[in-house]
Structures are given as structure tokens and as C-alpha cells.
């Protein structure tokens, strides 16, 4: 555990809490892509199956359970409790265009051809693109993203960027590297770059955020 990973994990946790609080307090999931949230739930489900097979640390297990739980609650709030406020007409990204290629890639490019390892690889690849429906939704509507949604996206994006620093650190300190995680993590971070720029130049100056289509 190093500082980059710890802050990254806390940022990841903060993102999930921000989104949950936003939906709960406003009693509305307007502007939130349910498709992205379903994909994140799939990411956690396929990656954290090792909860049943391997124990790393209490921290590791607790965080995994919390991520799973928060993610399920978010999906429940969007598709059941506050379904009436879900803006499905604008959440039109074709999820199969992401999930099918990602599943194919996970079967073809992985560390080991085993069930758990392929699911882990699938989760890494899927996480890197899971935010696209959300970004697409904001750019497509031309509507301004709520500031709180921007904070959510920033926290979620910066988490993987911090993980890249963590991987560089670990490569030099421990000699470990995971090519799959690093490449996917870089792709993921690049997808957020445009958003990061807009976030810093607009949201920090008190304006609302729009993503040009």
C-alpha cells in the first residue's frame, strides 16, 4: 500500500458516496446514466468474485464489499426507487457495443485462461470504458451536467489516474507490473482527460459543465 493507491481508493469510495448522496438527497437520478451504473455493477461483480477464494487483508475485503453494496444500491435507486426520474430517453448509448468486444478481448488477451482470471480481465477492460454512456449522455443532451455529477466524475476519474502513479511506484519498488491493468488504466484515464480539462476550467470557477458533442 502506498499513498497513491490509498488516495486513489478513497477517491473511488468518495465517488460512489457522492453519487448515492446526490440521488438520495435530491430524490432524483436525473442526468445519471443507468447504463454506466449497471456496467460498474458488472465490473465489481466480476472482479470481486475472489472474495470467496482469496483473502488479502481486512481493508481489501471491506472495500470490495462496500463497492459492491454501494453499486447495487445505486442501480436499485435508478431502476426501481426513483425510476420515474430516470432520464432513459437520453441514456441511449448502445451497451452491447462495449460489453461484447470487451468480453471477446478478455477471452483473447489475459494472463491465464481460467474462469476467474478471464472474469477479472473482463472487469478491468469493462471498467475502462464503463463511463462512456455517462459522458455520452451529458454531451448528447447538451444539457449542463449538475455540478455534483461533475464532482462524481472527477473523483471517479482521478482514482484511476492515481492508480497509474501507484503502478509506476510499485514497478520501481517491488518490480511488479500488470500489463493488462496498466494499459486499461491508461485508456480509462485518457477517456476522462477531456472532462478533467473542462472540470478544472469551468467547475472550479463556479460555472456549470457542458461537454461539447
Amino acid at each position: 500500500m502506498n499513498i497513491f493507491r490509498l488516495v486513489g481508493d478513497l477517491s473511488h469510495l468518495a465517488a460512489l458516496i457522492i453519487l448515492l448522496l446526490k440521488i438520495w438527497k435530491s430524490r432524483s437520478c436525473a442526468g445519471v446514466s443507468g447504463k454506466s451504473q449497471i456496467m460498474f455493477a458488472m465490473v465489481y461483480m466480476t472482479r470481486y468474485l475472489d472474495l470467496f477464494t482469496t483473502f488479502v487483508s481486512v481493508y481489501n475485503s471491506v472495500m470490495k464489499v462496500v463497492f459492491l453494496l454501494f453499486s447495487f444500491v445505486t442501480v436499485y435507486l435508478i431502476y426501481f426507487k426513483f425510476k420515474a426520474t430516470y432520464d432513459g430517453n437520453h441514456d441511449t448509448f448502445r451497451v452491447e457495443f462495449l460489453v461484447v468486444p470487451v468480453a471477446g478481448l478478455a477471452v483473447l488477451v489475459n494472463h491465464e485462461f481460467s474462469f476467474l482470471e478471464i472474469l477479472w480481465t473482463f472487469s478491468i477492460y469493462l471498467e475502462s470504458v464503463a463511463i462512456l454512456p455517462q459522458l455520452f449522455m451529458i454531451s448528447k443532451t447538451g444539457c449542463e451536467a449538475e455540478t455534483i455529477t461533475s464532482h462524481y466524475l472527477f473523483a471517479l476519474g482521478i482514482y484511476r489516474a492515481l492508480y497509474i502513479a501507484n503502478w509506476i511506484f510499485r514497478y520501481y519498488m517491488e518490480g511488479f507490473f500488470d500489463f493488462i491493468a496498466i494499459v486499461a488504466g491508461c485508456v480509462q484515464t485518457i477517456l476522462y482527460c477531456d472532462f478533467f480539462y473542462l472540470y478544472v476550467t469551468k467547475v472550479w470557477k463556479g460555472k456549470r459543465l457542458t461537454i461539447p458533442a
Binding site: 473511488h12 487483508s57 494472463h111 491465464e112
Partner: peptide, 10 residues
């Protein structure tokens, strides 16, 4: 050295 099978990251 590649990543160990026991994955310690989240």
C-alpha cells in the same frame, strides 16, 4: 515479474 495471481488491488 508479472502480477501475482492473488490480486491485492481494488
Amino acid at each position: 515479474q508479472m502480477w501475482p495471481a492473488k490480486k491485492d488491488e481494488l
